[in-house]
Amino acid sequence: MRWLDNFVGRLALSGRIGLALVAFWLLLAIFGPLLAPYEVGAVVAEDVFAPLSLAFPLGSDYLGRDMLSRVLSGTRFTAGLAFAAALSASSLGTSLALFATVSGRWIDEVVSRAMDTLISIPSKIFALVMVAAFGASVPLLLFTTALIYLPGAYRIARALAVNLNTMEYVQVARVRGEGRIYIACVEILPNMIHPILADFGLRFMFVVLLLSGMSFLGLGVQPPDADLGSLVRENISGLGEGAPAVVMPALAIAMLTIGVNLLIDSLPRAGGRNAGEP
């Protein structure tokens, strides 16, 4: 636990707030549904769009279902999907970047050009096009979001790898006669892992925002499944009466993404942060 003390000790106040938020939401995503007071799909309240109360801590939705239970299950959906997508994007992007860096110029050119093309399609536009062509299934959303954030992960990793590749210890390894895999995995990868992890956090945040946006448009996760974005959408008719059912899931998303952003920003300098979307 010493490293954890050390880690927390070095964070600024905003970083500690971020860490607490991230930990809170991760725990909720993992254990939350176990704590849910009601069945996710069960209509339990008498009123639709009920206000906050002891029985329904976050009110009820447009059908009279318990919002707390729905937010807990939506959190798992949102966080799980985003985690899987960000993990795929980061790991694939990093591997491609390492491969392009230690391979010849020609391969590097081709991979980089392909990534430049993908990154030139704004993320939401790309997602809309994919959904229009293939329909909004969960596997497609996962694939699409991973693909959308792959080029950004690639760019960051490639910049880091190219920089490390000019280091004298990499040249020493090359002169020793080491193969590409050794150079990529032993000499380069360990020295870029921290900024890559920070970038993974950012990607996770971007995916959460994109997925919720898509669900909010009705083009993301489809009923009966519901992520936090779908919860906002299905209750939007309650906006006129100021129902908590609209605001609560949206706040939940914001707390999660703000937490991630605060935490990453106070990590020891990794460069290239907050450079906007991908």
Partner: peptide
């Protein structure tokens, strides 16, 4: 400013929009 901007870049647009509607149109 840092805390404010750091939070704002991570907020989904529809939260801002719904809050704006709640405050300026509904209330």
């Amino acid at each position: 400013l840092n805390l404010f901007t750091l939070s704002m870049v991570a907020v989904p647009e529809f939260l801002v929009a719904t809050l704006a509607v709640l405050i300026f149109a509904v209330k």
